[in-house]
Amino acid sequence: MEDDKSLLKPQQGLHPEDNSRRNFLKQSTLLTAVALTPVAAVKAAESHMDEKIAEAFEKLPLKMEVNGVAKSLQVEPRATLLDILREQLDLTGTKKGCDHGQCGACTVHVDGHRVNSCLTLGIMVNGKKITTIEGLAKGDDLHPMQEAFLKHDGFQCGYCTPGQIMSAVACIREGHANSEMEIREYMSGNICRCGAYPNIVNAIQEVKEGGIAV
């Protein structure tokens, strides 16, 4: 991966350890750059301009492709891919179950590989291709794994389902769906509290045995 120089620029002079926006602005070399006069600075403070400026400089540009669509965003470095998908892009199919990599509900594909989006900082997928549950079907045609989940009743409440399906597709692609035992082991990063596990395994086996490329 190339070093993205544009990432470095806006952070000059940033003092993130300081929580006060006002202090930040006083210290910031950016202030001189925008050449605010004292009067303007007071006005800016009154209208919370300081926070708006601070906010602009706390955010970094993030370019990624989500479900085939190029996205260009400004994000705080601390924002996870999960929260960016759900809160900024309104792609709420990807679920927050535990927010700590312990349940798999947030599973998405990054450059074709399944990962926990709750532990992925958004800024770190700059330039990558993301596939979420919303990107699996082709128009009205469901992905074979989605069809199989429907047929085998591979869910009840449906909350873990997007993560299960994204993981199931990856499980087959990785070549880890060769037996019931192997599927169970390689699906164990996806918790289903409703307990649809046997149905999910059946769905995956059917898709695998169907031989259609997933």
Partner: peptide, 13 residues
Amino acid sequence: TRVDGRLKVTGAI
């Protein structure tokens, strides 16, 4: 099969 199943497997619900 579940009448809301399609909404659930597509993440639309």
